[in-house]
Design a protein around this nucleic acid. Structure first.
Lengths: 328, 328
DNA sequence: CTGAAAGCGCTTACAG
DNA sequence: CTGAAAGCGCTTACAG
């Protein structure tokens, strides 16, 4: 910029005016400055500009896995909202690791992002308090923050699961399995709660052998389901706690002789093309991302009432697998 | 930082030393500075630091769609490599729009990212020349740059398609359809070339009615395939040019009475669970992302020989749909 | 072991 | 209409 000013024979401020298209510069001067800019290949350094301005016009998104089919549309939705606000997006995957989440969040804060959208991996976010106090708006999505009172946007996990399990019960099932993610994950917990509530509401007993919580690795899910299907009183239906569990369950059930009913949490591509097509509780990934980002920008624009909790409804999509009656 | 220095009764430089854990500070002084830091809730501003240092320790990733099941694992791979180099990642989706690609790329450059990984939407990247001259290393991935000579990492689209089409021919097909993406997209072109080459190599004539290039929107693909299946001499097999085309083709073929063979470019989740399971030419999205990011960091570390072109092989995965014989 | 000065590349607030 | 000075929050190069 100094070089441009020198070459054009003007002051720094005038170059700044031209670059920012501020009024009050003679067409003639503009011309000279533009020539110098082109000749020197000058490109404004936005980082320096933002250092002076205060805002960085960037936000950070921390989620579990950028490649997960549930989180990638959510990311895209956040990106679109950011774009509408002329804001750039840092992204990072925590890989369901609390330490890594904190690393990413603090790295983003050190870059002075204006705000954060976080899918929590950690269950303790008190480390974020100094940042929030310093003005970094933060909205949690998919799961609530731990240990602090903060904005959160999530699906109605318990309600959705209740509906799915009630659906199975309505189709005659009494022994219904539930395979979910690790218990420390909020949504896993909520869905399990929904399962228990639905069973209780129907007056059905629950055997702890019908419940299996843990990593969603295929081997673990496969073993859990196989166990539930063995023995003299096997489950006749399964509620799968998330998309990865559902997919593995489908693979296992394909090899089963007797038909087993299945309802899964999360919709997934091609669910309708499988045989039987898979009945699911769909949640709105794009809606979650969009709502979280919009709330964030509302905060950035000064909306500072007390933390909000936005819960998005889920939707039962009937396709076939959930309507299979219990084997006699 | 000034406040911290004042409160601790030391100079700025000493605070800087403590923050950066540089040697040569008395434990006693460190102690005093730390206390001041905690008391004041000081958090170093990395943007300011990087302004002085030169490097921003960030890279930009521009791709077509963050939510696409092919690009999201690619992004994740780039992210992992960036993480290994203590570098933060800006991401943005071009939505297959040249203008939007340029906007994102230039916005990232204005923030002085150290480098870029770009899945081109535009076919003219001369706008990037000043940036590259200014030292922004750039690696293109999935498709080559247009109008400039730059690093690129891609799959062997033509070769993979040749193999897939040859596979259909080997199973007795003579009239084989090809539905691909818009012709201006490099990979679409390459795959079409592979199709023609495979047909020619087998001495088979190609009717232009068997070829349809255009947007991958379901309606367009559905119409194209329906047309190919109509008339007195319908195609008996289809090569689908990418994952979105394949999925729509599967939906259409499910409703067909006679069996039609199908091979698709790109593997996709659950392809093995469909009936028939879908034979595909798989490409390595993670491998592409990783190779591109690694090449980028090699450039950032000073490797500046002439631009490289890295081509990753594809892999035919036989599952059933590609082995259906022609209807008599 | 410690710190004052200069500077990274911009903008703000002011004066002419 | 234009520009010199000060400053954003840090680090570098140097001196003590």
């Amino acid at each position: 910029m100094k070089d441009v000013a020198a070459r054009a024979g003007v002051g720094l401020k005038t170059v700044s005016r031209v670059v920012n298209e501020e009024p009050g510069v003679t067409p003639d001067t503009i011309q000279r400055v533009r020539e110098a800019i082109d000749a020197l290949g000058f490109r404004r350094n936005d980082s320096a500009r933002l250092l002076r301005t205060g805002r960085t016009a960037s936000i950070g998104l921390v989620l579990e896995d950028l490649a997960d089919p549930f989180y990638s549309p959510l990311s895209r939705a956040v990106e679109e909202v950011a774009r509408a606000h002329s804001t750039l997006l840092f992204t990072g995957s925590s890989a369901e690791n609390a330490e890594r989440e904190q690393e990413l969040v603090l790295a983003f804060c050190a870059r002075r992002v204006d705000g954060l959208v976080v899918v929590p991996a950690s269950d303790d976010h008190r480390y974020l308090e100094p940042e929030i106090d310093a003005g970094v708006s933060t909205v949690f999505v998919d799961r609530p923050a731990g240990g602090i009172d903060a904005d959160v946007v999530l699906s109605d996990s318990a309600g959705g699961t209740r509906e799915g399990v009630a659906h199975l019960i309505a189709h005659g099932h009494r022994r219904i399995g539930f395979i979910g993610d690790e218990l420390r994950i909020h949504t896993a917990n909520e869905r399990l709660r929904g399962y228990r509530e639905a069973m209780a509401a129907a007056g059905l007993p629950v055997s702890e052998e019908w419940i299996s919580m843990g990593p969603t690795a295929p081997e673990r899910v496969r073993a859990a389901l196989t166990a539930m299907l063995a023995g003299p009183e096997p489950v006749t239906a399964l509620f799968a706690g998330n998309n990865r569990v559902t997919v593995t369950a489908v693979r296992v059930l394909v090899g089963e002789l007797r038909p087993v009913a299945l309802v899964g949490f999360d919709d997934f591509e091609l669910a309708d093309l499988l045989r039987p097509a898979v009945t699911v509780i769909a949640q709105d990934a794009v809606g979650l991302g969009r709502a979280a980002a919009k709330l964030l920008f509302r905060r950035l624009d000064g909306g500072s009432d007390k933390p909000r909790r936005i819960e998005l409804p889920t939707r039962l999509i009937v396709r076939g697998s959930g309507e299979i009656p219990p084997a006699p």
